[in-house]
């Protein structure tokens, strides 16, 4: 049987997803034995032109991590879609928008202003702190020719808001154990019906969390910076934010086992459309407070509810971005 032909691409992300694949350690050799890796920028020296030269559908499986927020990301997503029989959104950014998706609370103009003009540690164009601050140009002529940069978009999108996606592997990043189980499924040719979530559970984090749970009643909200949860009981019951209630399981509850609340990176469980809205509803309803003004004071203790409840999913939330 011919070896599987696979690829992995890193769009708008931190690189942690590709690193998680490398964290398979010596199993990466088994992967190389079972499959021919044609394109994987973090590990191989293949070029975009090599992908362009492939026939349509030449790749059996392509993993794309990272969100889509530039013309380069979009070009590669469309190119890899055309060249791949199966396209997988790999990790929270491709799946839900991820941390780069928080940029949807701004637009390009605001981001460029902040990063290239307002940041206190920038110098002007003449190197003396004077002159116009340098902002990125999509085309710049230099004596040797023309240099180009991709265009940055106003809105960050998920992979499936850009091209049709066959499967999703959640996680920020997906755990190596789950990655290996996905690779085994692919190599064995046992992929489920298209549209499925791979490498995760159909249950919620709370279903699989080893901590002891009682009736959930929160009287006071605490933060990990100023208090420490005990190692045995439910983190949310102790007053620390935890999104286990509204998050798909599959990571072995790694955050909760480490003494911090789930941040929601595996995305919504089956049946939940907007993870942040569901978190708001679930957590607010267990606050122990029967006076309206006191309730307002209690929820005011959550410093940043939108980013706390929807840290990984602004682009895939119902509203997708801030309206400007």
């Amino acid at each position: 049987m011919a070896k599987l032909k696979i690829a992995s691409y890193w769009a708008a992300g931190c690189g942690g997803c590709d690193t998680a694949i490398l964290d398979l350690h010596e199993k990466i050799l088994d992967l190389a034995a079972a499959a021919e890796i044609l394109f994987w920028p973090i590990a191989l020296d293949a070029k975009y032109a090599d992908v362009e030269a492939l026939a349509e559908g030449a790749l059996d499986v392509t993993l794309v991590n990272g969100a889509i927020r530039s013309s380069e990301n979009e070009h590669l997503a469309k190119l890899l879609r055309a060249k791949s029989k199966t396209l997988v959104a790999f990790g929270s950014c491709a799946h839900l928008g991820g941390i780069p998706g928080l940029a949807n609370l701004f637009n390009r103009e605001q981001i460029v202003e902040c990063v290239y003009r307002d940041s206190p540690s920038l110098e002007g164009s003449n190197g003396n702190g004077q002159g116009a601050r340098v902002v990125p140009h999509t085309r710049t002529r230099v004596p040797e020719g023309e240099l180009t940069l991709p265009e940055l978009y106003d809105t960050v999108r998920t992979l499936d808001q850009t091209v049709p996606v066959d499967y999703y592997v959640p996680g920020c990043p997906p755990t190596p154990k789950q990655i290996w189980s996905v690779i085994e499924t692919i190599v064995a040719g046992k992929l489920p019906a298209r549209g499925a979530i791979l490498g995760a559970s159909e249950r919620t984090q709370c279903d699989e969390c080893p901590r002891t749970k009682h009736e959930k009643r929160i009287r006071e909200l605490k933060r990990i910076a100023t208090a420490q949860p005990d190692p045995e009981t439910c983190i949310l019951e102790q007053g620390f934010l935890c999104l286990g209630l509204v998050t798909r399981a599959g990571c072995d509850s790694r955050c909760q086992r480490s003494g911090v609340g789930c941040r929601g990176c595996y995305g919504p469980p089956p049946g939940v459309v907007d993870q942040g809205a569901k978190a708001l509803s679930a957590i607010a309803s267990i606050l122990e407070c029967d006076e309206e003004h006191a309730a307002e004071a209690l929820v005011a203790q959550i410093p940043d509810p939108l980013r706390s409840f929807n840290r990984f999913g602004i682009p895939s939330s119902l509203l997708r971005r801030r309206s400007l």
Partner: peptide
């Protein structure tokens, strides 16, 4: 209510 409006950023500068 303009839900989802990106607010139009000016085009990114390019040489010339």
């Amino acid at each position: 209510c303009r839900i989802g409006s990106e607010g139009k950023s000016p085009p990114q500068p390019s040489d010339g």
